[in-house]
Nucleic acid binder design. Structure first.
Lengths: 220, 220
DNA sequence: CGGCTCCTTGAGGTTAATCAATCCTGGTGG
DNA sequence: CCACCAGGATTGATTAACCTCAAGGAGCCG
């Protein structure tokens, strides 16, 4: 049911039932198969989306056809919100499996914001925060590949509650995309880490052997 | 006088005299010589600034000591505003000549925002817009140097009201920093444009000879 | 045991930084 | 009026990072 789906979105948490009803009135349900393009980088911005079920990735496309995954959207999260400030999408989005989402047209949403200032304030603040995050991700792409990989590994470990071990849930080629590089370079870089005694690799499980060196590398 | 200085800031335009007085009460005047560091990338974020007189540049620092100028701040503009969302500065700032500025401590400012919701709404919206701009600038650094230069030239021309001619007011090495590259590469790239018949150069004046090709280059 | 997909390894090419040398050009003092 | 000097601007040669293309493995399922 629409309102229940909306209530699960962190961006909308804490809204009153009336506000959610108003939102539900402008939310268009969409059902997409896997690997479907939702919007492309540079497309005129018309709407943003709430992911109710399934999974979606947001990515930047480069000149050379390479892509860097910016984030994996989780159930209940919104994406493409920057349409409210921008007139074209700053990144592309694609489903990774069959997904159910809601489309929120930006002019409908803007109209709603005028009627409900509280909603607007909440959205704008959340969005500013998102933009800061996005900015950090894009900035990371300016670092050399080894630094990006080191960051990722350290983050993954702390995310999984360990300071030395972590398990990679996605394929290495997905990781390469997430780091904005290609599988070959990822493979070579991992190899270099192993030869340098920084980490040990067993399949998709990693062990950090020399944390200080890895942290130094992650710096720059 | 403080209030007059504040009134000139686009971010604050349209505020009532009372609101400006309240702001003036928390604005600390600062006088700095040229080439002075205002804050460094990564410093804990405590305040943002309004430039009343002089000139300031905001820049990203790279691992290798290179820097990319993100923007040249003009009189009446604010910079470092992202402290309101971030707990450290995402870029560094430095005066380019003797400058007079006002320091606005972020917790003072936040307190003021709570008391004056209208002020908060205005600031947040303006800031979200700024963040989008910043994001675009950082993204540009992912493009190859010729694309960045092409963009810059086209922007400069349209900024100066001409579709074919423009004049560069800063030194070429400053332009190189603005493009996130080094003077040598800028020189070679300009040369390539000239040899390719894209532009003509006379000192610091440029003429666009083949706009479509330049626009194509700017794409990616 | 093919055939598949994913991963790795090697060779080569492109982009752009670095280092070093040279060339202007405008300002200064003789 | 001219020689000289300093900073900026150019040019050449070298180097580093990392992508591309191409060719092997390694595991896995029918």
């Amino acid at each position: 049911m629409t309102v229940d789906d909306l209530r699960r979105a962190p961006l909308l948490a804490g809204l009153t039932d009336e506000q959610l009803d108003a939102l539900a009135a402008i939310a268009q349900p969409v059902l997409l198969p896997g690997a479907a393009t939702i919007f492309r980088q540079g497309d005129p911005a018309e709407a943003f989306y709430l992911l109710a079920e399934g999974s979606v990735k947001v990515f930047k496309a480069f000149r050379d056809g390479r892509t860097a995954t910016i984030r994996h959207v989780r159930t209940g999260e919104t994406f493409g919100e920057s349409v409210l400030f921008n007139d074209s999408y700053p990144a592309g989005a694609q489903t990774m499996e069959e997904s159910r989402l809601y489309r929120l047209r930006s002019d409908d949403f803007r109209r709603l914001m005028l009627a409900e200032p509280e909603l607007g304030l909440r959205i704008i603040a959340a969005m500013a925060h998102l933009l800061v995050m996005l900015n950090q991700r894009v900035e990371e792409l300016l670092l050399p590949v080894p630094a990006r990989l080191a960051r990722f590994l350290l983050d993954l470990c702390s995310e999984q509650g360990s300071s030395t071990q972590c398990h990679l849930a996605i394929a290495k080629q997905e990781l390469a995309a997430r780091l904005g590089t290609v599988p070959e370079t990822l493979s070579r870089t991992l190899n270099r880490f192993v030869r340098g005694g920084l980490i040990a690799v067993d399949g998709n499980t990693f062990e950090v052997l020399n944390r200080p060196a890895l942290e130094r590398l992650a710096q720059q």
